[in-house]
Each structure stands twice: as C-alpha cells, then as structure tokens.
Amino acid sequence: MAYFNNQKEPVENVETNVWSCVNDDCQGWMRENYSFEKEPTCPPICHSEMKKEVRVIPEMK
C-alpha cells in the first residue's frame, strides 16, 4: 500500500527467532522457521554450526 507522495507504509520490527553462525569470520544467519533441520549448518557461506538467538528484524507478512 502506498501513502500520499509515494511514501511507503512503515514496516514494523519484531523479535524473531533466528539461527546465527558461530564462526567469528561469518555473518550468516536465517530465520528459524526457514530451516527443516533441528540444528542446521551455515549453508550459504561457511558450513559451520549455528546457534539460536533472537533478533529484531522487519516483520514478514
């Protein structure tokens, strides 16, 4: 939905459970509900282990 003068509707940030890569040289992460594995590895970058954490990111609708 667009507002007057082509301003876009603001996106709300929410706390979201994510998987975050444990490798200090890697910044890979993904939303928890995007993985079918119980404990995924970092697929796109380094294939290291990942840990659960909570981030404040834009809500997906």
Rank of each mutant, 00 (worst) to 15 (best):
S35L: 03
P43G: 14
P40M: 05
K51R: 09
S35I: 01
N13A: 07
S35G: 05
E9F: 10
V56L: 14
V11G: 04
M1S: 10
N23M: 02
N13T: 05
E9A: 10
S20H: 08
V14P: 01
E15N: 13
V18Q: 00
E37L: 04
S48M: 05
E59T: 03
M1C: 12
F36R: 04
C21A: 07
Y3A: 10
I45E: 09
Q27H: 08
P10D: 15
T41K: 14
V14A: 09
Q27P: 03
H47C: 14
R55S: 04
P44T: 09
K38S: 12
F4G: 05
Q7D: 06
K61D: 14
D24C: 08
C42H: 09
S20M: 07
V22L: 07
S48G: 13
N23W: 02
W29L: 01
M1T: 06
A2C: 10
T41H: 08
P40D: 01
K52M: 05
M50I: 07
S20F: 08
E15I: 03
P44F: 07
E53D: 11
E49C: 04
E9C: 09
N6G: 12
M50T: 15
G28P: 02
Q27S: 14
D24E: 15
P58Y: 11
V14S: 03
T16D: 10
T16S: 13
D25P: 02
N13G: 00
P40C: 04
D24T: 14
I57A: 07
N13Y: 14
D25G: 08
K38D: 13
E15S: 10
P43W: 07
K8R: 15
M1L: 06
K8Q: 14
R31S: 02
M60A: 03
I57K: 03
S20T: 07
N23I: 03
C26S: 11
N33L: 07
C26A: 05
E15T: 02
E49V: 01
Y34R: 00
Y34P: 00
V54R: 10
G28K: 01
E9H: 12
Q27W: 04
P58D: 09
